[in-house]
């Protein structure tokens, strides 16, 4: 019985993936904080030009997994990752790889908007500058404008690019952070509950933006809101107590989950 479900799921996953290629793949990914294990043998594929939502109750390991994808866990003392994680079939935990290059290709947007205490322009110009993506001031201006346009923020801030980014509203700040991530031309954008600090109107704008960005980028989003996951994602992965419970096309997860835990969670029995 169990086996059957599993095979069925896998088949569905493969079917959904047939026209998309795998961008990132997790193979038995485990994470330890010191002695404590926070994530157990997660196998998860992220498909190109899709929004993958990671859901699950607090402390289930979804954020931990997300931070593994661009090695942000490296900044935490005593954190250790086991298993294999690939980006375009290159192991990102290979000691030879350049973390900096990885993060340039796998960008991240955080839970709380964290613009640098600099001008709007400088916030966005920071990434292209450090990666040497632009040759001239003209190029830089262009990249900043394009990034802001893509983040749907250009019209709102075009007259005050030199004002501090911290002066914007919460929703604008978060879109600024997205624009900042886009400016580096990443391939994957990781979003860690990007709307949890925003009001419903700002949330709607950001969700709209995520849907647009899907055309050009691969997006992984951690969210606490079932509705959000249903609205923006194509695939959803459910985590519980550090385990990946199930992963499937979003509409499958929300209409016909195979695991009772997922059922309980999305119907709000716990979480």
């Amino acid at each position: 019985m169990n086996e059957m479900t599993e095979t069925a799921t896998e088949a569905a996953v493969n079917a959904a993936a047939s026209n998309r290629s795998v961008k990132m793949r997790g193979d038995k990914v485990g994470v330890f904080y010191g002695e404590k294990q926070a994530l157990f043998d997660v196998d998860l594929d992220i498909y190109e030009h899709e929004v993958t939502a990671l859901i699950g109750p607090s402390g289930c390991g979804k954020s931990t997994f997300l931070r593994c994808l661009n090695r942000m866990n490296d900044t935490i003392d005593g954190c250790r990752v086991t298993g294999k994680l690939t980006l375009d079939s290159e192991n990102i935990y290979d000691p030879k790889i350049d973390v900096v290059e990885l993060r340039a290709r796998v960008g991240m947007v955080f839970q709380k908007p964290n613009p640098f205490p600099k001008s709007i322009f400088e916030n966005i110009a920071y990434g292209p500058r450090i990666h040497g993506l632009v040759k001239s001031k003209g190029d830089l201006d262009e990249v900043v404008a394009i990034s802001l346009q893509k983040a749907g923020l250009f019209e709102e801030v075009k007259d005050r690019l030199n004002e501090p980014g911290t002066g914007l509203s919460g929703g604008q700040q978060q879109r600024l952070c997205i624009a900042r991530a886009i400016a580096v031309s990443p391939e994957v954008i990781l979003m860690d509950e990007p709307c949890s600090a925003l009001d419903p109107i700002a949330t709607a704008k950001v969700e709209e933006l995520i849907d647009e960005l899907r055309e050009n980028y691969t997006i992984v989003i951690v969210t606490h809101s079932m509705q959000q996951a249903a609205r923006v994602s194509q695939r959803t992965a459910m985590f519980h107590l550090g385990n990946l419970v199930e992963v499937d096309a979003t509409d499958v997860i929300f209409t016909n989950p195979s695991d009772p835990k997922t059922q309980d969670y999305i119907t709000g029995r716990y979480g």
């Binding site: 290159e90 990102i92 290979d94 790889i97 350049d98 290709r105 394009i146 893509k150 031309s185 391939e187």
Partner: peptide
């Protein structure tokens, strides 16, 4: 225009290897 350009930059970057 802008959308086109970004697709091309994204395509250009796909060729790079982490190693």
């Amino acid at each position: 225009d802008i959308a086109d350009q970004s697709v091309s930059t994204a395509a250009a970057t796909t060729g790079r290897s982490l190693l």
